[in-house]
Design a protein around this nucleic acid. Structure first.
Lengths: 335, 335
DNA sequence: ACGATCCGCGCAAACGTTTGCTAACTTGCT
DNA sequence: AGCAAGTTAGCAAACGTTTGCGCGGATCGT
């Protein structure tokens, strides 16, 4: 890679001038500018972001820690973040926390060492609290996606889980369902607890006492939805399942198909998240849609605003989910 | 962030010594080392990867350009890359090329400016050739995933598309299918052409003349699979669809369900890629499975080996796909 | 014609590291 | 006792930028 000095030598000017040409940071005569530009083109010069970062002590990099990029929820989120960064000449450092406390810690170490300008934390796991605390200690500007961190002075982009769960449950109740099971995510995650609480409250609001064997705890992945739904179906009583995310719902749909329960005639299923593929399964999945990509963009923008000094105090952005009725829900059997 | 000098001051040694303690690059007395380590802990010091990169002119960063991280194929690939990098203390710069020529170019500019040590190019688009040429011009170590770049002196990790297509077609032929349609990806992509060629050859090998209205060109996304399959089904003749990837296949499955064609009784569908979700749809998708994540790891390892000087000449790694028979295929109707 | 003003540009320090060179002190040998 | 060898650790240059400071020459007003 060529350097600014090589460009300067070739253009017959000082490297100061080259710098100013590149950054348009003070007027340069046309003659000089043209020579410099030609030299840059001939050498294929790109300013070193490394040297620049060292000098200006900002890297224009945002670090992103997600549990697992394979999960469509997080890949959509990352996409949103990436888009917003791209538009603002920022780059993204991606770290997979891997649902693993140690690895998340190491990711943070890396990001700290890389001197990223800010971090977006999207790990819903318990350990994130530790992470958040560490980040707070370093005063690194941070945005947290979808997990409350009590007392932390960071920006927070949250989903209104309670409202989402209510949407799903009201839909089911209106269709006449009463014996509604819930497959939750790990109860260690606040998300899971909030959605489960929504399930419980809605049931009680309808005068139905939620039975504890209607609540099964999964891990947000399709296989666990599959296995848990099988158990639920074996009981034989329930008419609907509210799954804590779409992957669990897919697993449940699969279990229903295997057990010969026709959806939605014999069983209704509602998911949560609204990942794209849900509209292409058969039956298409009724779900509580969250504008995931947009959340990613928002998280990035909020952080970028803070970095640019456009905001002072940490804020909370709450995004409201909306019900997407497709084909996996219908009137309760016998209703 | 604290610097090496602050640590040195606190420990009462020169910053040279701190550097040597951190890097274990020359012996340091126990007394000094302990003081330095304590100072590091107290200050929460992390060496600046930025300064380090400037000095040593290697960043320990790999740039990755993918068209779209939302596509499960690429998110699995990225996951593999990320894992391999993590194990080798490398970081990953993620760029979404967005199926957009300009943006891919800009991504490369960014990566060049960031002085990444190497690039993994996974954009299957035509423009990649241009990219690859530019990269070749800069002598930046590069690994290309799944697209042939004739004449480029870069590492290449390829899928044996022809073999994969053959697997799918043989399966269908054995089940008695003869009127087999193909939904391809954009013909601008080599991948698409290779898979389509496999379809054509297999058909001819079985003594069936492939009709051109059995071949429809999609864009690797579910909506286009959906629409194209609808047209195919309207013709009414075909008994099976070989889709060029799983997303197209999902779209096709969806179209079949909407048109009342029961899969696999009335129609068989085979996908390509073997993304995880395919085993949770109903019917579960028969597909040609590719070890995507492993390909990502391989791509990263090959590149890392080159960077470490462990390999000299660019190599080609070919990964063989295998057939995963699930539920979306069955005997041809009337067979 | 002469000082004031302005324009264009170069010099050099600094950012936080790594690393070759060298100095001081200790130890061991004769 | 004196010197060689070994051990420990500091000095300073360099990596490729940005940026404050200042200097020379052209332009302008009177």
């Amino acid at each position: 890679m060529s350097t600014i000095k090589q460009v300067a030598a070739r253009a017959g000017v000082s490297f100061t001038t080259v710098s100013h040409v590149v950054n348009r940071t003070r007027p340069v005569s046309d003659a000089a500018r043209i020579r410099v530009e030609r030299a840059i083109a001939e050498l294929g010069y790109f300013p070193s972001a490394v040297a620049r970062a060292l000098k200006t002590s900002q890297t224009r990099i945002l670090g992103v820690i997600v549990p697992n990029i394979i999960n469509p929820f997080f890949s959509e989120l990352v996409r949103g973040i990436e888009d917003a960064c791209e538009r603002n000449n920022y780059s993204v450092f991606l770290c997979n926390g891997d649902d693993d406390r140690d690895r998340q810690g190491r990711s943070l170490d890396t990001l700290l060492g890389r001197r990223v300008d800010g971090v977006i934390l999207a790990t819903p796991a318990g350990p994130a609290t530790t992470l958040a605390r560490r980040i707070a200690a370093t005063k690194l500007p941070t945005a947290i996606v979808d997990r409350p961190v009590p007392g932390a002075r960071v920006d927070h982009i949250a989903i209104d889980h309670a409202a989402g769960a209510r949407l799903a449950m009201e839909h089911l109740l209106e269709l006449g369902h009463r014996r509604i099971a819930h497959i939750s995510g790990p109860s260690a995650f606040e998300v899971s607890r909030a959605r489960a609480a929504g399930w419980r409250q809605a049931l009680q609001g309808a005068g139905v006492e939620p039975r504890e064997d209607w609540l099964l705890e999964g891990d947000f992945l399709a296989p666990s939805g599959h296995e848990l739904a099988r158990k639920l179906l074996a009981q034989g009583e329930i008419t609907a399942i509210f799954a804590s995310n779409d992957m669990l719902a897919f697993g449940a749909l699969r279990a229903a198909a295997e057990a010969g329960w026709v959806v939605p005639r014999a069983l209704s299923v509602v998911g949560f998240d609204g990942i794209e593929i849900g509209s292409f399964t058969s039956p298409a999945l009724t779900t509580v849609g969250v504008p995931i990509r947009q959340m990613g963009e928002t998280a990035a923008m909020v952080l970028l605003d803070r970095l640019a000094g456009r905001t002072k105090r940490p804020g909370e952005t709450i995004v409201a989910p909306r019900l997407i009725v497709r084909e996996s829900t219908g009137p309760a059997r016998g209703a």
